[in-house]
Each structure stands twice: as C-alpha cells, then as structure tokens.
C-alpha cells in the first residue's frame, strides 16, 4: 500500500460533518434549480462527451403539465436512496464473491460520487454498478462489464457509458484506503503487544472476524468520509473487544498513543470513537416501501412516467448519437 499519510485520500477526501452537509445541499440545490426552470435533471452525455441536462421540451402541453408536477427529491430522500443502494453494493459484491476490498472500494467510490452530484442528475442504480465495475478494474480483479451486467440482468453498455464520468468525478483519485487492512495491521500489532500464546492468538482471530463485521457496518454510514481508515479500524476493534474481552484495550490504546508521536491523543481518539459509534447506532437500511415513492419522484425529475417510459425515453434523446441516449436506457430493476 502506498502511504496513507501522503495520499489523495487523506489530503482531499476526509471531511468534517459540516462539509458533508454543505456538499449534499449544494448538489441537491443545483438539481432543484434545473427542475424549477422546467427542465429535467438526468444528465446525458453528448456526442462530444459534454454532460448536459436535456433541453426542456415545451412543445407539447402534456409535457409541460408533467414537468410542473415534477417534484424535486429532498436531501433526506437522496440520503435514503443512497443508504438503500449502498446496502445493495454489499449484496451484489457478496453474490459475486468479490473480496472485501472491492466491496469497500466500490462503496467509497459511490459515496464520493454523490458528494458531487445529486441522485437526480445521475441514476444511482447505474452509478452503483459502474462503481463496482471500476473497483474491480482498479483492484486488479478484472470482471468484464458484460459479465457484471449479466449477473444482475442489466445492460452492460450502461456501465461503460458511466465509467469515465466516475473517474472524472473522483478526480482520478482511485486509490482508496479501506479499514480492513488496518484491522489486520492492528491485530498483528496486538499479537506483539500481548505476547500472544496459541490460545490468545485464536482469540485475536475471533476479535478480527468480529471487527471485520463491524467495519462492514461502518462502511454503510458516512464514517468512511469522516475518519481515516486507521481510526475506523481501531474503533471496530474496540467494539469487537467489548464483546469478546480479549485484551485490556485501554492499556493497548495508551501503548499506541505513547509510542506514536502522532498528532492525535487518546482523548481525541475516544471522541472519534464515540462519533463513529453513534453513526453505527443510528444506521438503518431503509425498507423498500420507503424508497419506492422516492423512485417515482426521481422518474418524474427525469421526465419519465411509469406508464409510458419507452416513449418518453425516445423523445428525451434529442441527439441521435449512440452515446447520448444510453444514459437513460435502463429499466431500473434494482429498485
């Protein structure tokens, strides 16, 4: 692993809670304004690669009426959809038997992507799959778009169409640090700290297993955008240890913070720990019944309505180029 301390992850992608709120608000506001002006919010890719909102179609009364009925998705609703789909990322990755690292990378890509865009601007179901595809590519576990698409009955062309937008939005900062490796590192360190015998080694294994599951949970919250991976890993181990009581964690923490001439103190870490804990405690995957009405709203933002989707899509693509129409091509089956 390259060094986290000098990484783009640390320099650019760890935020304060206020920054997150501000970013989500800004993206939502931008899409809202487009909608207010009578446009549709789903960005399309033009032949020359420009991203644009489709031009408002004011020619038919029918359309004008529909548009006036299109209600923007609220910031809270955006969050709901994201939470729902992030859970799906874990599910899809499990079904494909991808290693943890890929799942984590895909999740981080997805989270970063929707810091910059509203879900009204890019269909999150497409972005979800493309993030998984990109994560596979970056983590050297290459899966062809076709294979991935087949696995979930989606058109793989949609994945290819969105790939570049994802890299661009992530500013090509594609090396991300998930807490799983840090958990491993801390476990190795603990082995030394405890002078572990065979029994204790076995218990540390259990500790690690539970900590991994803790990390799985954290990955579904905002925590990966708020804390560096080392802190997340330590928090996971702390919680895991509370369950298994393998070692004197307080003593271990004192030990780490005494030898590390780090900028952090133990009390600062306890603060982070509590913050991470409350993120996990407050996490709830929204049920389908909650996302359904939001998806309806989304469709109306995109100028689609449920009964004549096909027709609307055809109308939508003003540009006859292959690329431009693909963005909206897919029936959302993950919904």
């Amino acid at each position: 692993m390259a060094d986290f301390m000098t990484s783009t992850h640390r320099a650019k992608w760890v935020f304060t809670p206020q920054q997150l709120v501000e970013k989500y608000r800004a993206a939502n506001q931008r899409a809202r304004e487009v909608l207010e002006k009578g446009g549709t919010t789903l960005m399309t890719i033009d032949a020359d690669g420009s991203l644009k909102y489709p031009e408002p179609q004011i020619n038919t009364k029918d359309n004008a009426n529909k548009r006036s009925r299109a209600k923007p998705v609220s910031i809270e609703e955006e969050r709901c959809i994201r939470l729902f789909l992030e859970d799906k990322i874990q599910e899809v990755c499990k079904n494909f038997h991808f290693p943890h690292k890929i799942q984590a990378t895909a999740l981080i890509y997805f989270k970063r992507f929707y810091l910059q865009w509203s879900i009204m601007e890019h269909d999150p179901k497409n972005i979800l799959l493309t993030c998984i595809y990109a994560a596979c590519k970056i983590e050297e576990n290459h899966v062809s778009a076709e294979e991935l698409g087949k696995g979930i009955q989606q058109d793989h062309q949609m994945i290819l169409n969105n790939e570049m937008i994802i890299y661009q939005t992530l500013e090509f900062d594609l090396i991300v640090y998930a807490p799983y490796r840090s958990v491993e590192g801390f476990i190795n360190d603990m082995e030394e700290f405890c002078n572990a015998d065979d029994d204790l080694l076995q218990m540390l294994k259990t500790l690690q297993e539970t900590a991994r599951l803790e990390v799985d949970k954290m990955m579904l919250t905002d925590a990966p955008l708020l804390f560096p991976p080392g802190q997340l890993a330590l928090a996971a181990l702390y919680n895991s240890n509370a369950l298994h009581k393998v070692l004197d964690f307080d003593g271990y923490l004192s030990n780490i913070f005494s030898r590390q001439s780090s900028m952090h103190t133990k009390s600062e870490f306890i603060e982070s720990l509590n913050a991470i804990d409350s993120l996990i405690k407050n996490y709830r995957c929204p049920p389908r019944s909650e996302t359904k009405p939001i998806n309806k709203k989304l469709e109306s933002c995109w100028g689609l309505s449920s009964h004549d989707e096909g027709k609307k899509r055809e109308k939508k693509s003003k540009h006859k180029s292959k690329k431009s129409s693909n963005e909206a091509q897919n029936a959302p089956s993950l919904a």
Partner: peptide, 17 residues
C-alpha cells in the same frame, strides 16, 4: 471494448499519489 484502458487508469491513479 471493455471500457477505459486499465493501463491508463493505473498509470494515472499511481501518479496521482
């Protein structure tokens, strides 16, 4: 036809760091 060149992506992402 499988998307963006992995070689290019790899070179960029390493050089970014």
């Amino acid at each position: 036809g499988d998307g963006v060149s992995p070689t290019a992506i790899r070179e960029i992402m390493l050089l970014r760091e």
